[in-house]
Nucleic acid binder design. Structure first.
Lengths: 125, 125
DNA sequence: ATAGCAGTTGGAGTTAACTCCAAGTCAAGC
DNA sequence: GCTTGACTTGGAGTTAACTCCAACTGCTAT
């Protein structure tokens, strides 16, 4: 698969794909004789993983560390597990905070609806 | 309340508080005769709101628009309500995505635990 | 009245994560 | 063999959201 095919399929720009690779977020992408990237299914799975983690808020740096550990071989299994567990915990906290914020917004919107129903009575903010 | 008091109380740096004010995220903060900011309880409530929304991912720009509408008076009640509803919807989507990512991480961590238990069998990535 | 500290400003600097660009290479079709 | 279009690289530019800085002002305590 060429970079533009992966780009379309994963909805990530070619520039970003190259950027991720350079940053160490992809494990050795194959090249054709001419030096052109030739992505495998496995690469795509990994790219999807990176995309998912990035959009959940994991930093490039954390993902770089994860793949760096990966390259060091299986004696880093525990370290990788722990890295993921740490990120999971942070994510869980943001998740709960988000839940609270959603409730807060729901409440605020309901207050707005009441204010609008009551002849456009102004609110504090 | 002085800026440093609010800073401690809300755990936001004085620089950020001034930055927010300049960006239009705070409705007219009072000043002493000498030109020093004198925050009210109400200001703090608003700052807390901004902090909460910011950490949920609402942009400075969106919050600026919200407070700009506010300053225009009560004929913007509906517009403000709709702005909040739009952001709420986006938040909800991120919330659900995060939920999926949490599950994915849980699964991945469990796969790691199995791999470690099975004599450190290496994984795909 | 002077030292010292907290506050003020405008503007410059920083960071993360892209995003764009110029100059060059390569494979395919005419 | 030449054009065309997708690919390559290193490096510069961009954006959002702070964060820092220098120069200045103004209370407060000695």
């Amino acid at each position: 698969m060429t970079i533009s095919e992966v780009s379309k399929r994963c909805n990530i720009s070619p520039d970003t794909l190259r950027y991720y690779e350079k940053a160490g977020l992809l494990l050795d992408v194959n090249r054709t004789a001419g030096g052109i990237r030739d992505y495998t299914e496995q690469d795509c799975t990994q790219i999807e993983f990176v995309k998912c983690m990035r959009s959940a808020g994991l930093s490039i740096e954390v993902l770089r560390k994860y793949f760096e550990l990966f390259k060091r071989g299986k004696h880093t299994l525990k370290a990788r597990r722990d890295l993921l567990a740490t990120e999971r915990k942070a994510l869980q906290e943001r998740f709960l905070e988000l839940q609270g914020t959603l409730k807060r917004l729901d409440y605020k919107i309901s207050v707005y609806d009441q204010a609008i129903a009551s002849k456009n009575k102004e609110l504090k903010f």
